[in-house]
Amino acid sequence: MNSGPGAADEAPVDEIVEALRGVAQLGGFFALGTVRGPGSGGGHLTWEGFSARARTVNERLATAETRIGVSIAHLGLAARLWSPVLACALVHGIVPVMTTVEWADDGSSLRLAGPRGSRAPRSAAALADAVAAQADGVLQRVESHLPARVAPRLLAGNSASALVGSAAQLLRLRPGLRGPLTELTRDLLETGRLRGTGRITGPELSFRRRSCCLYYRVPNGSTCGDCCLVR
């Protein structure tokens, strides 16, 4: 999968910035700020930054089990990557290049340094590949330096859960996108490591994953709505 646009399909920077500004108005995880220069994070989601956020999750959930904080922080990061990429692709026809995404502050918000992007491919398969490369591809690079060992299928399940959760939220906000959004989401669930992570269970993009994010292990925790442990 390519990490950036080719010269023929590259979108102007102003259009990319406007597209991201537009989808940010959807709120929540769709917000992705931009910095015209190289930014302050060296163009990367650093492992130190992720580790700090995982520790914060552990403290907030009052659990000492490191892999729980890692999994929950990873799930949140996945949602912040999938949401703006999905929305930009379907609402504005632009796939932003996420390789220069960085932490925006001491919280979990993200911003894109030196924004670049490409026109969304017309082929369904090519679009799925392009979107996956800029969301799940960046997420996998973060996973190469996690502060605790977490099962690869759990991480893939987190990514799939975040993908479908982002798609379901976009569907609620933009119901007119139902057809292309449902098609793209299904295609993405058959792309790369997301294949076999779960299945869509309803027209509103409800989902049942085949792994668990470990939230049930925190004090007073419970299973999530898409968890494989739900009966």
Rank of each mutant, 00 (worst) to 15 (best):
F50K: 12
R80I: 04
G39V: 05
S161L: 05
R217G: 07
S118M: 13
E143S: 10
L173D: 12
R21T: 15
L205Q: 03
N58P: 01
A162H: 06
V13M: 07
P84M: 02
R36K: 06
V101G: 00
R67I: 02
L154W: 02
G4I: 07
H74L: 15
G41L: 05
S166W: 11
G27E: 06
E10G: 07
S211K: 00
T223R: 13
A113P: 10
T201I: 15
S71A: 15
A24G: 15
A167G: 04
L81N: 03
R210P: 08
L188S: 02
V91K: 09
G117F: 05
M98V: 07
V91A: 06
V164N: 01
L181T: 01
L112S: 02
C88R: 03
R67Q: 13
A52Q: 14
C227N: 10
A130G: 03
S159R: 02
R217M: 14
L188T: 06
V57K: 04
S166F: 10
C224V: 13
R209N: 11
Q140L: 12
D136M: 08
A113C: 08
R55L: 14
F30D: 00
V218H: 07
S161T: 12
E18L: 12
C88F: 05
G107K: 06
A104I: 13
I72P: 00
A7N: 06
L189V: 06
A133Y: 00
S206E: 14
C224T: 10
H92D: 13
L194K: 02
G202H: 09
A135Q: 01
A11Q: 08
V218D: 09
T34D: 04
L163C: 03
L155K: 03
S206N: 11
G39H: 02
A11C: 07
E102V: 01
R186M: 09
P175V: 14
L229R: 15
V23G: 02
I72H: 00
A24Y: 11
L112T: 04
V142G: 01
L181R: 00
A113E: 01
F29S: 06
S51A: 15
L26D: 08
G165K: 04
L75H: 13
A120R: 03
R67D: 12
N220A: 15
G114W: 03
R21A: 15
R153Q: 15
F50W: 10
W103H: 07
R186V: 11
A19I: 06
E15R: 14
